[in-house]
């Protein structure tokens, strides 16, 4: 059995106020895959992501990460394995400096001071943010914050990266930089996004959630080719697959 795998079986989730967020969601993700979970606002994407690292627990159904079912006992190990990158980096960067923030996870893993320093240096290099080491988070730009947030997660050496709207709020240049960074990762990657061009670029597979259900699950290009499906789920084609507004030709 492959180690890095996410398996979701018949997942239901109902919020305390009675809102049904997920209905019978099932899918399997294999080692090294890069998968997008897309859907309209309120389709249940964020709720789904919050289950993957055990912050929310299923009303019914099962989640397996690697060889373990997600239970109270396996929770710490699963939280290390599944690295979550939040939509708002400010929620994730809560320590006083970039160093402290990236070091937060490794310290909790019980590494020694020297090991932590090495790891911090290493992951900041990976995301190209070494120069930000001593800075407080509130002096960083949006793109810098995002990269440091990714570094804080990488420092836990996760096997699976889960990202909620990674490109939201970034300027085109910072977005481009981020896409380059994400493409080079060899982790299993799961994204949610409304940035469908990013999905097209980074993910070979796409899952569409619609009103809490899995509406479609397949190769990204095929899904974006199905106009009827997209319209039904309140989505549309990525811009790069639409006709050119000036000359009308397709790319």
């Amino acid at each position: 059995m492959s180690h890095h795998i996410v398996e979701v079986k018949h997942l239901h989730h109902v919020y305390p106020d009675g809102t049904v967020a997920l209905r019978d969601v099932s899918f399997t993700i294999h080692h090294g895959e890069s998968v997008a979970v897309i859907g309209a606002n309120g389709a249940g994407k964020s709720t789904l992501l919050l289950h993957l690292n055990g912050y929310l627990s299923p009303t019914s159904g099962e989640i397996r990460i690697g060889d373990f079912p997600l239970t109270r006992k396996t929770l710490p190990e699963i939280r290390r394995t599944v690295g979550m990158i939040f939509q708002d980096a400010d929620d994730q960067l809560f320590m006083p400096t970039v160093f402290d923030d990236v070091a937060f996870g490794p310290f909790n893993l019980g590494l020694s001071g020297e090991e932590v320093k090495l790891r911090v240096k290493d992951v900041l290099e990976q995301v190209g943010a070494t120069h930000l080491l001593g800075k407080p988070p509130y002096h960083l730009s949006g793109g810098e914050k995002k990269r440091v947030a990714i570094a804080t997660v990488l420092a836990m050496s996760p096997d699976i990266l889960v990202m909620d709207e990674p490109t939201s709020g970034l300027d085109p240049y910072a977005r481009r930089q981020l896409l380059g960074l994400l493409r080079d990762f060899h982790h299993t990657r799961i994204f949610t996004s409304h940035d469908l061009d990013m999905v097209l670029e980074l993910c070979e597979r796409t899952i569409i959630l619609h009103q809490g259900r899995v509406k479609a699950d397949g190769p990204t290009r095929r899904i974006f080719g199905d106009d009827a499906l997209l319209a039904e789920c309140r989505l549309e084609k990525p811009f790069s697959m639409q006709g050119c507004p000036v000359c009308g030709s397709r790319k």
């Binding site: 937060f104 909790n108 836990m156």
Partner: peptide, 20 residues
Amino acid sequence: ERIHMAMLARGFTGEFHSGQ
């Protein structure tokens, strides 16, 4: 709540460690 989530995701157990 989200910050707490982010802390848990990185193995927070109630202790803060100081850097340099």
